[in-house]
Design a binder for these strands. Sequence first.
DNA 1: CTGTGATGCGAACACTGTACGCAGAGCGGA
DNA 2: TCCGCTCTGCGTACAGTGTTCGCATCACAG
Lengths: 245, 245
Amino acid sequence: MSRSRTTDRNPIPSVWTREQRRTDQPALSRDAIVREAIAMLDADGIEALSMRKLGARLNAGATSLYRHVATKDELMELAVDEVAAEIHVPPADSPDWRAAVTEAAGSFRTTALRHPWLTLVLGQAGLAYLGPNYMSFSERLAALFTAAGFPEPSRAIDAVFSYVIGMSTTEAAWLTTVARSGESETEFVARLLPTAQQVSAGYDHLAAAGPETSAQAADPAKLRDDKFAYGLEVVLDGLALRLPT
Amino acid sequence: MSRSRTTDRNPIPSVWTREQRRTDQPALSRDAIVREAIAMLDADGIEALSMRKLGARLNAGATSLYRHVATKDELMELAVDEVAAEIHVPPADSPDWRAAVTEAAGSFRTTALRHPWLTLVLGQAGLAYLGPNYMSFSERLAALFTAAGFPEPSRAIDAVFSYVIGMSTTEAAWLTTVARSGESETEFVARLLPTAQQVSAGYDHLAAAGPETSAQAADPAKLRDDKFAYGLEVVLDGLALRLPT
DNA sequence: CTGTGATGCGAACACTGTACGCAGAGCGGA
DNA sequence: TCCGCTCTGCGTACAGTGTTCGCATCACAG
């Protein structure tokens, strides 16, 4: 307190030495926080996101974030809703409802695979996702299925998207473990193949039914695409039977 | 060290005062640890399980557990496999494949709802669940679908169980938030209803398509049962079309 | 009686989410 | 020019986490 200003220990706190508020990252705002959180989640996975690390990336202290976000759970909720905006749902007056639903389902899947933490968070809270983007996603789905002529659109939506969520969750988990290995998916599959064959050797039907032949393992991404498309066709066929002629 | 034994400070460590190893909980074993972990997970949810609390419930220190289990993740893996034994899959020679698959799907669902943390853990790791019970579950599924005559049983299994997993995940998340409220599901729904109607009022098709009418909200558990059954029928219908006649 | 290997555990480390209270900045009014 | 007043950032602290390490204790083999 009585220390003379000029002999103060370095660094001297002063208006001139104090870092100017960065203009490219003008301030700590809720939007900036959510954006950076999504970037970290995408890059390093869900368990790598901590309030301290997030604060550091924004040139801020950890506790500063709590001025704009009540809690970490709320931050995750905001991140989910932000990402929900990426899901594309065709307009309700699309001529071909099957193509339109296929598009919406595929868009959900690619979004979930682009942000592999999405399904995890969705499975954790379930409710309370009443964010505007998620609501408008649901609304556009309802419009699409209603226009398609389903007498109970919400049941049809639940059927299709339970499938989509289940498949996307499984795929996202798989991609996460692949990413953790540091290898490409093809490399990882190749390294895993002998183990998989060995462990399933003791199970007759698994060995016979398994798709783990080396021929198919060459392009695992395409295999996943086909598998998703196949199941979706199954569900849509079943749904088509319930459409009033 | 040089302290005389009779004047040692209380409590005197002695063979006689030392607690006899409890016979009803004879020792710390891997099985006992997994069993107790499952009990805690079922009772208090996934975030309530910590190694220290688990140790305390077993009259043991937290770090003692690491003699029998390499890591907490491995413990969760063991818990998943233990619980996978509860899933019932009818024998492959069942006369009615639809009834058999419906039984297996329903058994998976009830197991997932009895242990609401199951879907969470499954979505987190995806791979690496090569435990004996989970493998035998998959094997019996493969046997069932093969016997039913599906040319690509693994694709059919993926289609059905992606749906089952997706629906179960959503339901488990819902039940978890209900449980956290301390109310019964019916009470919770009743309290939530005005909010749900208000928020969906701004969305035309959601308001029209939503099942949130007070009449149906009387028995939400039955509503969930019906919804699950409906979607499952849809998937099975679609699958039946692919069965060689 | 003497190792010897398995088992339990207290202390410690590097983290986590978050509550609290202080410091300073910007600003409207006297 | 100064006084409050609100808003924002942050250092400190607390209770809790998973896990490592080294020491003490035990049952049992030689």
